[in-house]
Each structure stands twice: as C-alpha cells, then as structure tokens.
C-alpha cells in the first residue's frame, strides 16, 4: 500500500469529539448533504510521542484482575491506540458509518515487552473492504512503534450491518455450527457495572455498555460487556505464561448481556516441553451461547 497518504496528527484526538463528528457525518449523510464514499480512503493517520500514564495502566491492570507490572497489557495498547483508529473511521470519506458498527474480532502480534514510559508512535489505516453475508466488513490496522521499531501490530475487523457497498460481492452465510460447551477451567462473574468500569478506563463510552436503560434506548434488552474487556481479561489470563513475543486472536460471537456469569476454557499446548500456545473459548454458563473464542501463540 505504497499509495497511502501519510497524515500526521499533532496529538491523540479526543474520543468524545470524534463521536460527535461521527454523529454529524451520519446526520449529513442521512439528509443527503454528504455522499457516502464507496472505497476506503488511501490514508494512514499517525500520532507520535504518545505517552501513557502509569496510573491509567495500573487502573487497567486492576480491572483485569491482573498483576500491576510496568509493561503494558497487550489489550491496553489497543485501547491506547484507539483514538487514532477512530480518527480514520470518522473521516467524512470513510465508506462505512461508525455508529452501529459491530466488532467481529482482533488479531495482534505483540512483538516485545513495552514499558509504560516508552513514547509510542501509533499509525492506523483501513484496508480489505469486503462483502459479508450481513453487510460490509473492514480491517483496521494499527502499527505501534517504540524507538523506531514495530512493537505491536493489530488488526481489528468491524462489520457495518445491513450496509452493502456497490461493487462488493455479498459473501454467503456460513453454516451455523452448534456450540457444545466444553468443560470450563474458570468462571467470571460480571456485575452490571462491568461496562461502566471498562468505559472509564478505555474511553469507549458507547451507551450500549453503560447501563440497562441507555442500552434499551438503543434497542438492546440490557447493557453488554465491551468485547475488548473480555479480550483483555482472557489474554491477561494467558499473558503470564506466554513468553514474549506472542500473537493472539479473538473472534466475538454472542454478546455478553450484563450481569453475567461467563464460563471459560483455556487450554495450553506445549511443544518440545515448553509453552507454545493456548486456545480459549468463553460462553454463557447458563445460556450455553458462545461469546468468544481465540488463541494465544508464541512467536
């Protein structure tokens, strides 16, 4: 993608301002004042000198039930880079509407331990606009650099439900596979406050996460847990045993309506007597619906 225009932002944009701009773009598109683009903008946004606060990392680690370390949890890096991602998604020439976009999954390569004090350069761009049986999906790529080298590379896949971009083939619906819960190895009890607590540390104040009432207004029966909170907790459970560098991926299925008891199975695999990878699955203890699955692998 050598054709991507590099745009340097002076600082991390404010998430709330980006949400407001997304609302105005949505309104203008609806009113016909703005024509929706049919292709991804050939740009990448970069913010350099991103400095995370130790207090913020510590709060994040507490929320995950993790150990307070000076290195950044892998999902924290996603959260720290998220404003740059949002600046791409809220561009007026971005072909998919931000509001109502569904997070399908993530793939991350965590290339080395990142100390909280290191200034980071975050670059985000979008690629792979593709047809999906339920709409159109897109990959948002993030490279995080420290001292001039890539230390974290992530891909998040989002789906704009019900929106079909002309010229993209609609993918056929994959066959639904019945989910039979395996034997659990752990259990999380998530209270109704789980969404608000993660919103406070991640800055993702989407109303579907905040309260039963705000979620109802948006058509959900109750508030739902952030996908990245679930990812952060499960990756944290494995990160301790995974040697760096490592890669992880997660695919989200049914949302976790709060409060909830999530049953979890994490299965470690060894190669040559050393930890090699772990597979994980989370599901509703009572509903038996799969919430997410994925893996962590040594690189």
């Amino acid at each position: 993608m050598s054709t991507r225009e590099a745009i340097a932002l002076p600082e991390l944009p404010s998430l709330s301002k980006l949400y407001v701009s997304a609302l105005s773009t949505a309104a203008r598109t609806k009113l016909g004042a703005l024509e929706r683009s049919h292709a991804l903008p050939h740009v990448q946004h970069t913010v350099t000198g991103v400095q995370v606060s130790l207090e913020h990392v510590t709060t994040f680690q507490h929320l995950l039930h993790g150990t307070v370390r000076d290195s950044l949890p892998s999902v924290f890096v996603h959260s720290a880079a998220f404003p740059v991602v949002m600046s791409v998604l809220t561009r007026p020439d971005f072909p998919l509407p931000l509001l109502g976009m569904v997070h399908l999954g993530n793939r991350v390569r965590h290339l080395r331990s990142i100390d909280y004090s290191e200034p980071l350069a975050v670059t985000a761009w979008a690629e792979n606009l593709a047809g999906h049986h339920a709409g159109t999906c897109v990959d948002v790529r993030v490279d995080v650099q420290a001292a001039g080298e890539n230390v974290w590379e992530g891909t998040s896949t989002y789906l704009a439900k019900g929106l079909y971009v002309p010229g993209l083939d609609k993918a056929s619906r994959p066959e639904r596979q019945d989910f039979v819960p395996p034997q659990p190895t752990a259990k999380w009890r998530l209270g109704p406050e789980a969404g608000r607590e993660y919103a406070a540390v991640s800055g993702d104040f989407n109303p579907i996460h905040l309260s039963a009432l705000s979620a109802k207004i948006l058509g959900l029966k109750r508030s739902i847990a952030h996908g990245m909170y679930l990812a952060a907790r499960v990756i944290n459970s494995v990160e301790a045993v995974a040697a760096e560098p490592f890669a992880w991926d997660i695919e989200f299925a049914a949302p976790v309506f709060l409060p909830a008891t999530v049953a979890l199975r994490i299965e470690d695999h060894e190669a040559d007597g050393r930890w090699d990878s772990a597979d994980f699955t989370g599901w509703g203890e009572r509903s038996h619906r799969k919430h997410f699955s994925g893996s962590v692998r040594a690189l």
Binding site: H65, Q183, P184, T185, A186, K187, W188, R189, S237
Partner: peptide
C-alpha cells in the same frame, strides 16, 4: 480460587 473464579468444590467436581 483467585485465578479461576471456581470454588474448590467446582474444581473437584470437574
């Protein structure tokens, strides 16, 4: 158990 959230009885049941 702090790391699994499962009680001792639930662990033994498995």
């Amino acid at each position: 158990e702090p790391r699994t959230g499962l009680s001792m009885g639930e662990h033994q049941a498995l």
